[in-house]
Design a protein around this nucleic acid. Structure first.
Lengths: 243, 243
DNA sequence: GTGCGTAGTGCTAATTTAGCAACATGAAAC
DNA sequence: GTTTCATGTTGCTAAATTAGCACTACGCAC
């Protein structure tokens, strides 16, 4: 929903910040400008401003990376929403399913995993390490998309909306996706095959009021779907009702 | 370090975002303007822009709160720096000391705890729940300040630098603080009494290269200081050298 | 229904920002 | 050591964006 008078400096500054956060290595100001299609002087000015408030910093090679204030922002957002704090305990109760356990939010047409735990790992190891994943191929992504009006989903998957071209990502069949989302709305959960293996499936359930979803992934038989769904849905209820 | 041409729109937009993240309740746009001393139309425009990119959202009462993209930013910053991921395992090794275990970064003249664990809690419960704490009263805060040039510390604690007036916070004796910081630099660790009780002390050690610090807090005798310091310093080395 | 405080917008003057041209820096090649 | 190249950064001013006034729409209490 575009406002009447968006502040373009803020939008572009935030795009620089998000690109920094998403980039695995320190990045130069000119390189970042090339990545985002922005003029170099401008990017340098925005990065210098981000550094001034602590959200970016430079290393000895003068390249930029996230600064300490981004952790502050992360910590405060976690504290303010309470989402991760509320979710960690209940998510642990799913570990006995011997499946991957995850929680994520939508970011563009992808899922960002706030938490992603595999069997045999410690509970705390699930934080902050998964790359973005195509929403249409994810059970978590689909239950989040299913909460959107159809028009908004269409807009998200048009070619001109996409700012990042990912060649490794298969084109999405929009009609197929809309059919799947309609089914998700009926069932109250999404069941998808992962991109990597048709035998590995994800079952996702939305967290009401949080714009987030939780789910499990792995190999399970069709006859187990109802039981697993009930467990995941109960966990979602616990997370949503805790305050 | 103020740049040649800071972008004031970006600075003020980020201030709105940070205030949203720090505020425990949804907040109206005019109220936020009063909090930050900014003109209401301007704040509304900045908030609408933040909402446009997903970093803010409105509830049914039209008040603003952080949006899903802030979690994405948090997750990506954790993934990018790897700080929390690297730190969680080593920090758990300090649990046997039966003290509080914490990790934090500096934010203004306060410490923001990225992690804060008390004895008897699960490892994952330490995330995203502590309020900001005066840096001068914190072992973690002091080792972080000790890495700063004296001039910069002076500037941080002048009255005009402070944007937030916290009446409950005792005035800092700058000369006393500078003396303590000189001692911290010699010793390689900080030892402070907490604001709440003179019997509860914090011992803090800096994480090289991360602009962060870890420490323990609780009641311990003087004769235990060297041993505890060695344990904390060893943990700090593990965290800093992991990649 | 009225009154009050709120959120939000159109329009245009005011202010900020963008980009050109230049300088400073650092690394690699010779 | 010097030269070259790509980088990061800055001053200045024209161009673009933004801020604030005045207004409308909304929600709640009485």
């Amino acid at each position: 929903m575009k406002p009447a008078q968006p502040n373009q400096s803020l939008i572009d500054g935030l795009a620089c910040l998000q690109a920094l956060a998403a980039h695995a290595q320190p990045v130069g100001s000119r390189e970042l400008g090339r990545m985002l299609g922005l003029e170099p002087t401008r990017v340098n000015r925005l990065l210098k401003t981000l550094a001034f408030v602590g959200l970016a910093q430079q290393n000895e090679q003068r390249k930029y990376l996230p600064g300490p204030a981004i952790h502050v922002l992360a910590a405060q957002s976690m504290r303010g929403s309470g989402l991760i704090r509320r979710a960690l305990g209940p998510l642990e109760s799913l570990f006995d399913l011997d499946l991957q356990v995850a929680m994520g939010v939508l970011w563009d047409d992808q899922v960002c995993y706030l938490y992603h735990h595999s069997p045999g790992e410690s509970a705390g190891a699930g934080l902050g390490r998964e790359p973005l994943y195509p929403a249409a191929s994810s059970g978590l992504g689909q239950v989040l998309l299913a909460e959107w009006p159809e028009e908004q989903v269409r807009e998200l998957f048009t070619d001109e909306h996409r700012r990042r071209i990912d060649p490794s990502q298969k084109p999405v069949s929009l009609n197929e996706l809309l059919k799947q989302l309609a089914q998700v709305r009926e069932q109250g959960y999404a069941l998808t095959q992962t991109r990597e293996s048709s035998k590995v499936r994800t079952l996702g359930v939305a967290l009401k009021g949080d714009n987030a979803a939780i789910g499990v992934a792995g190999r399970f038989a069709d006859r187990d779907v109802a039981r697993i769904h009930e467990r995941v849905a109960e966990t979602a209820r616990q997370i949503s009702t805790q305050r």
